[in-house]
Every structure is written in C-alpha cells, then in structure tokens.
C-alpha cells in the first residue's frame, strides 16, 4: 500500500520530455536571443511572480487580488538594502524573500476564513494598505518619486550587471529555475497533494485528518516568499523601485498572466508571462496608448467562450504527450 503510494508519487514527479524541452529552450534563449535579454528578463520575473500566484490560486484555490503586496514588499526590501550600501544581490534577494515570507505568514491568517469574496477583499485591502504605507513613508521608500540611488553590486562578487541585461537575465533565470525546482518538488510531495485536496473540498480534507488551516498558511507563506524574490529581482535588475511595484494593476496583471498560461500546473505562469509580455510589447507598438483595450477584450472573450476551452490546451497537450 505504502509502496504503491510512493511509486505513484514518484511517477507524478517524473520529468517528462516537454518539461525538459521547455527548460532547454529557456536556457537556449539566453544564448540565441542576446538582443532580447531585457525583455526576457522581465518575462522571467513576471513568470516567477505568476508561479507564486499559481501556488496560491491554482493549488490552494485562494483568489488573491492583492498579490502585488508581496512583490512590492520584496522589491522595496531589496531596493532599500541596496541604497543603504548592502548591495550584494544574492543576500538582498534572500532578505527580500524572507521579509515577504514574514508578511505572507502574518497576513495568511486573514485569508483562512470567509468566502471567495471576503478573501478577494482582504487581499485587496492588504495590498492597498501597504501601497499607502509605501506612499506615506517617503523618507524610506521615496514615495511617489520612487526609490533612487540604488547601488547593486556584481552577482556573487563577479558578474556586474550590464546595460544589455545579459547578466540580469541569466541571474533571473537561475533564480527562477531554482525556485521552480523547489516548487515542483513541493507540489509533487504528499504536502502538495494535500494542498490540492484543500482546494478540492476543505471540509472533506479536514475530515480525513489534514490540518486545512496549517496547509493554507504554509502555502501562502511560501508563495509570498516567491513573490518577494520576484520583486527583489525586478528591483535589482532595473536598479529602481517605484510605487508601481505594489499598485493594483500589478495584482491584476499577474492574475491575467497566470490565467493566460493556465492555472494549476506550474508552467502556466511561465508560459503566460511569455505570452503576456510578448502581447504587451506587440500591442503597445501597435497602439501605444490603448493596448489595454485589447488585453481587456482578450479576457472578456476568454471568459465568455470558456477558459477551459481556450487555454486549457497547454496543460492538455502536456498531459497527453506525457502519458
């Protein structure tokens, strides 16, 4: 019985060739598309952020409209550290992740109770409160002018950031890959399966002896850390932090990103980030002011036609090939 369960888990966690191909392509893009490194760096960061939301939304089923709170928290921690003279990127990133995790742990207790709507409102108001805090504490965060004067040292004391974004993209990609591996391992563990069970039916999950609240707190905290690291990456690679990192539209964008790629199979955020950033740069070239209109249209159409029908395909293809 136990051996069978372990075998099933191991089978679930086995690497399949589409996944390998995905990461080979990701690493290959660093070699083959040197002039796209700045954009790809943004893709990697958005991908990590969307992966973080996927842990909360896709696996635990918590709808969050304020995920930018953790992203912004991480960005400000990394930014402020760099401005105060602790410019080592790796340590700064670690600090960003840990502080965001702390924030996630504290606020996770607020989303334990209540319906979708209450959670939506609670996450939204947490991010709004933090936005106001960042806005008002201008002596620390620069307020509406943004945080200026960041000095970010070379990665590992060796690779200095260049203007073409080559080091930045490599750095973000390494971080993304590392954290992805962790998330993949966690989600294919018994713990990950129990989190999915909570999403399926919290009451029954509790009835078979899984501590529902503990699971939610843990996954929310972990996701907050991921978002914090993503924010830290953005701060370090652009050497600038503005209120924009914590604004509502960032929470909305990341949700759209995740949904574009598909919810609940880890790659959704990454594929969505690629599609979203590509569509954004293509549309804003086409109509610089009104690209939001077309993004909006895509989402209205997506929901009316049915998300599963339109964008279930990457997951479905992946499953079909992998079997």
């Amino acid at each position: 019985m136990r051996a069978a369960a372990q075998a099933a888990l191991a089978d679930l966690g086995r690497w399949r060739w589409p996944e390998v191909a995905f990461w080979v392509a990701a690493w290959g893009s660093w070699l083959l598309l040197p002039e796209q490194h700045l954009l790809l760096n943004e893709v990697a960061i958005l991908g990590l952020f969307a992966l973080s939301l996927d842990l909360v939304l896709g696996f635990a089923g918590i709808i969050s409209l304020g995920h930018a709170a953790f992203f912004g928290c991480g960005a400000y921690v990394a930014g402020i550290l760099a401005r105060l003279g602790w410019g080592d990127p790796v340590l700064g990133l670690l600090a960003a992740g840990l502080v965001a995790m702390g924030l996630g742990f504290v606020t996770s207790f607020l989303v334990l109770r209540g319906s979708d709507l209450t959670r939506l409102m609670v996450t939204l108001s947490v991010s709004l409160v933090l936005f106001e805090v960042a806005n008002r504490m201008a002596w620390l965060t620069g307020g509406a002018d943004g945080l200026q004067g960041m000095v970010v040292g070379p990665v590992l004391g060796w690779f200095a950031f260049d203007i073409f974004g080559s080091v930045a993209y490599a750095y973000s990609l390494v971080v993304l890959f590392g954290l992805f591996l962790v998330a993949r391992r966690v989600m294919h563990s018994p713990f990950g399966l129990s989190v999915r069970a909570v999403k399926g039916n919290a009451l029954r999950t509790a009835a078979i002896g899984i501590p529902v609240n503990g699971r939610l707190v843990a996954i929310y905290t972990m996701a907050a850390g991921y978002a914090g690291v993503a924010g830290g990456l953005l701060a370090q690679t652009t050497q600038f932090v503005s209120l924009d990192v914590i604004a509502f539209h960032r929470s909305a964008d990341v949700m759209l990103t995740l949904v574009l790629g598909g919810v609940g199979y880890l790659y959704g955020g990454l594929i969505g980030a690629l599609v979203f950033k590509w569509a954004q740069s293509w549309l804003s070239d086409l109509t610089p002011e009104y690209w939001q209109f077309w993004i909006g249209l895509v989402f209205v159409a997506l929901v009316v036609i049915g998300r599963e029908r339109v964008f279930g395909w990457p997951a479905a293809v992946l499953r079909r090939i992998a079997r």
Partner: peptide
C-alpha cells in the same frame, strides 16, 4: 454561473476596455 475567478477576470477585462475606449 461561472467561478469567482472567471468573474474577476471578465470584469477587469471590461474595466480595461471601458477605460481605454473613453480615453480614446
């Protein structure tokens, strides 16, 4: 009849469209 996530996406999409249309 759809999930709350769908409703959120749909209405945010509508807001984006309305804002852009008005500013255009």
């Amino acid at each position: 009849g759809k999930s709350h996530l769908d409703q959120v996406l749909f209405t945010i999409g509508l807001v984006f469209m309305a804002s852009s249309a008005v500013s255009w």
